[in-house]
Amino acid sequence: MLATLSGLIPQNLAFPTGGMDLAFYVVALFMLVTAVCTVAVKNILQSAVFLIFSFVGTAILYLLLHAEFTALAQVMVYVGGVVIFVVFTILLTSRLGEDAFAVKIPRVFAAFALSIIFTLVMVKCLLPIEGLASNAVAAPEGYASLKAFALRLLGYGPDGFVIPFEVVSILLLMTLVCAITIARKGKEDEEK
């Protein structure tokens, strides 16, 4: 069994032992455990909390890849925004999270089979890549810094992203206006 497994691993793949690699394995294990907990725990609020820890693990992975701003944006958007609102919604709607939700058994089998197939396909596709780096390749100096990032985001040149940025800002403005329209009292409500 072990021999066949070692035969599968190509010789060009050096077994990683650096500090960064060990950190990656620790974080990956943490993410896997929290991800499994997210779907496995009975209480819906607890799964939201484990989801947050999983997102924090993702942010640490970004940090290991020297993408600091992406990591902070991950924490800011998901931990500070999305999941807090998920928690709020759960607290306000689901009878204080008392009703546990059960996972259907056939669905578990289907999901299990799908995830195993997905893993096999990923391994099959990734392993033949030449020079699959074990160490994170250092980005050019200042490439991922906030300044370069901001200049690129608001740049007018051929490599700038100012048009998508403005389109997204208009979309956000529209959602804001929509939220206010839904939330505000109509004339009929005020008369009552």
């Binding site: 600091e68 800011m76 807090i84 928690v87 906030l146």
Partner: peptide, 20 residues
């Protein structure tokens, strides 16, 4: 480099802890 974004990002944990 990103002290201020870091502060804004981690403030979310306070809300989470209080809600929980």
């Amino acid at each position: 480099d990103m002290g201020i974004p870091m502060i804004i990002a981690v403030n979310g944990f306070g809300v989470l802890g209080i809600l929980l």
